[in-house]
Design a protein around this nucleic acid. Sequence first.
DNA 1: CCCAAAAATGAACGATTGTTCATATAATAG
DNA 2: CTATTATATGAACAATCGTTCATTTTTGGG
Lengths: 213, 213
Amino acid sequence: MAPTSLGQLKPRKQPVQDRSHATVDAIFEATVQVLLRDGARKLTTRRIAERAGVSIGTLYQYFPGKEALLYALVSRQLDLAASAVEEACRENHGRPINQCSDTFVNAYIDAKASNPESSRALYQATAGLDMKELIDTAIMRLHRAAYSLLASSSDDLVDDLDNVVFSLIAVVTGGTRQIFEGDDTATRLPTFREQLARMCRAYLNESKVSKRV
Amino acid sequence: MAPTSLGQLKPRKQPVQDRSHATVDAIFEATVQVLLRDGARKLTTRRIAERAGVSIGTLYQYFPGKEALLYALVSRQLDLAASAVEEACRENHGRPINQCSDTFVNAYIDAKASNPESSRALYQATAGLDMKELIDTAIMRLHRAAYSLLASSSDDLVDDLDNVVFSLIAVVTGGTRQIFEGDDTATRLPTFREQLARMCRAYLNESKVSKRV
DNA sequence: CCCAAAAATGAACGATTGTTCATATAATAG
DNA sequence: CTATTATATGAACAATCGTTCATTTTTGGG
């Protein structure tokens, strides 16, 4: 969990009054909006503060810098998505392989689709910054959750399950990203979800012990 | 600034001497290196010129601005990859579905893997800039190539082939991106390629007319 | 060798960046 | 109420940004 210098990246002040919570939320929300409207290149602390309706000084009372703000935003979102997937996987242990597959695919897409704007913004925010540790941590959580789910399945899977899960996650997260970064997300997401579910089921069924000589 | 005016984004001067070609190449190469080493946030025209071993003035004799430089770089790379995939698809018309699938997957990954550093840099470069048109064009080329390839297959496919191809491309491009943006690309790419190929084959075989009632 | 064209240079400019800090306002406890 | 802490403000700063352009150096044909 500990990045290089976590002390520099944590919030400067912890809120004790209600209004400061509201301020922090407004800053996060403004960051997402600026990211969506102006893009990562024009994402400045001034613009964020302006859209949030607070002064630039206020922003710097809660975050030691711009990087820390983005770091906190991304961290929050990734944790939310990972937790949702973990819970869904936990609740579906021991089911047939097809159901396990659908569980993972749908849980991940649901998590992203629950706030499409934030998801879009997130992809922009991670660019150009060193969010690798954060992303790696989230992916590891997905990996553990999916591995555990599939290993618990009532169907037997191949022994190189690690590679299967690794590829599955790359495809699900990467494919979903393409949809969210492309046009007509709302229109195309249902179709993609269905096709991705079919694809993952077919792949995992192909990976059963019984299918491999 | 007007991002959509294409005239502003084209090279300012066309090279007539050899050394100027070398200069342009050096600038492109330097852009990739800065992108990889310092990230998109620290990608400045000064830094690019410095690493290319030219003055800042020289950079602005070939490109009207930073955006135009990135636009040209991304455009070149996307065109290269799309052309490679198109050619491979053309050469494999009329084959069985499994071979068509492998053709597309391997052609795309080969194109990206032929210069992993450029591919990595490309993903960073597209962030925060308005490269949507460029990317859409490239994806449309991939779509046409894959559609034509699969439609020509000796096996019959479902009638909603457009949706199948759309999802296939999202998964292949998105999944590959995840591998290139992650750690240990060189180590993990062969495994991912193999698993992705299996996944796409399984998916397309599931999409045959004979399998759907 | 010479000289017009091509290519390269980097000091300089205004705009904008991230960040700080002395000050002002709002909330809360006694 | 008063005193104290929490929160909010925005002018100001140094650094750096993208870009321009008058000038110099290099090139290649005559």
